[in-house]
């Protein structure tokens, strides 16, 4: 396995992976708040769809990162892999309420 040319140190990768989770979390919260602020009957679907979009858009890079890590070597590789997997799981889990909770009440 070769040292990946782009990926940084494993600890930094784990931090970066969780930064993606933080982005997902923050954007979901922001879109939820803004959607309720500028809500109309015709935008309700759009509001929810945007949130699903934000959620999925964040799952993609984490998945790609995990695949890249599994195929290459970086310092503290296990930390990088575990951290990315954890961030991926956390991002997936954070989206769960989308399926069960009303957006503006």
């Amino acid at each position: 396995m070769r040292r990946h040319p782009l990926l940084p140190h494993g600890a930094a990768t784990a931090v970066g992976a969780f930064a993606i989770w933080a982005s997902a979390f923050t954007l979901l919260y922001i879109v939820q708040a803004l959607g309720c602020r500028f809500r109309g009957a015709e935008t309700m679907l759009l509001h929810r769809a945007t949130m699903y979009g934000v959620w999925i858009v964040h799952l993609v890079p984490l998945t790609l990162l995990l695949i890249a890590l599994l195929q290459s070597s970086v310092p503290m590789r296990r930390v990088a892999i575990l951290g990315t997997a954890a961030a991926l799981g956390a991002t997936a889990w954070t989206g769960l309420p989308l399926f069960f909770a009303s957006a503006c009440q």
């Binding site: 889990w93 769960l96 309420p97 069960f100 909770a101 009303s102 009440q105």
Partner: peptide, 17 residues
């Protein structure tokens, strides 16, 4: 996961819909 789903469903039922 079980708890979260149950909690969200319970919470949803208690809202002033």
């Amino acid at each position: 996961t079980v708890l979260l789903v149950f909690a969200l469903r319970t919470g949803e039922a208690l809202l002033p819909h």
